[in-house]
Design a binder for these strands. Structure first.
Lengths: 162, 162
DNA sequence: ATAGATGCAAATATTTTGCCGCCAG
DNA sequence: CTGGCGGCAAAATATTTGCATCTAT
């Protein structure tokens, strides 16, 4: 929470400023989860990823450190992190096929705004979004654990192109 | 609804109030899209679906009317409808596997609120959500064509259970 | 008549499972 | 030491593509 200036003015690629390398490792250690060599590699990559990761990219980068690291391990580790609410799973409106993307769950939820033309994804925080969630919690009498908003449209450049 | 409830543990009791049978057919006709026998069948099912449809269920129901209707045709028709913004694609937070669900795109966007315990899905409209979208459009200078919010949590009954 | 759809089979893509040997704690 | 974990292969799911044939307009 301390280091998250979380001021993402990103026009495209994700700027991961909200987490320090080691955060996820700490979170899992604190919960008594076994920290294997493979997990440490994956956690570090996720912690410091400059953009949204999919399984393919995560695996490729992990193999840079351990060529034998298996795809299944990637899936299992992501499951683990999801179960603990430490990563969020997105599909970014299926901009590219039906893969999923993952990002560390920061201190504050944000909205993903994607251009359907060029694929650029912006992350936006909004007081209105926080209020919306509180409204839902009240009205639906639900204890929210995950909230995901993905918005698609066309940016000025892509509008001109079409 | 005898057969379709077997696999569907409860994807939510959706009340389809927003569309009449024939709406989608009209929309496509107006756009000069060829209306084949297969498409008419699929459109009618989607138009009147009382719950969120996935490809499996849609295919099964369509085969009641035409046993030879192919799964590929289902995918292609859904693609068509997506391209024209006539259906929305959801994954309902992967409550059950990684399939996608589809619903007609009504006059007003709504939020999907799902209980991660029992799988019930509620649809909620919100003035706040509309304002949020307008804010995003303004701030990000984007022309929104699709907006999706999926919220997960635990309902009172499931909270007590855990 | 003909552009565009469908059916079928096969290819891709994505995720999960079973089993056995291995390693973090 | 040992129970959980990772690797490997294969299965299960989910989606897309190529092509010959058919049909809505």
């Amino acid at each position: 929470m301390a280091t998250s200036s979380s001021h993402r003015v990103s026009t495209g690629e994700r700027i991961n400023i909200s987490s320090q390398p080691g955060r996820l490792e700490g979170e899992l250690g604190r919960r008594g989860i076994r920290l294997t060599r493979q997990r440490r590699i994956l956690l570090r990559i996720i912690d410091t990823a400059p953009e949204h990761l999919n399984v393919e990219v995560l695996l490729r980068q992990a193999r840079h450190f351990d060529p034998r690291l298996n795809r299944v391990t990637v899936y299992r580790t992501l499951d683990l992190l999801k179960r603990f609410g430490l990563v969020d799973e997105l599909d970014l409106l299926h901009l590219r096929g039906h893969q999923h993307y993952y990002e560390t769950h920061g201190p504050r939820d944000h909205i993903h705004v994607a251009c359907l033309g060029c694929g650029k994804v912006r992350e936006v925080e909004s007081e209105l979004f926080d209020r919306l969630k509180r409204q839902i919690e009240r009205e639906c009498d639900i204890e929210i654990t995950v909230a995901r908003t993905e918005i698609g449209g066309y940016c000025p450049a892509c509008r001109r192109r079409s």
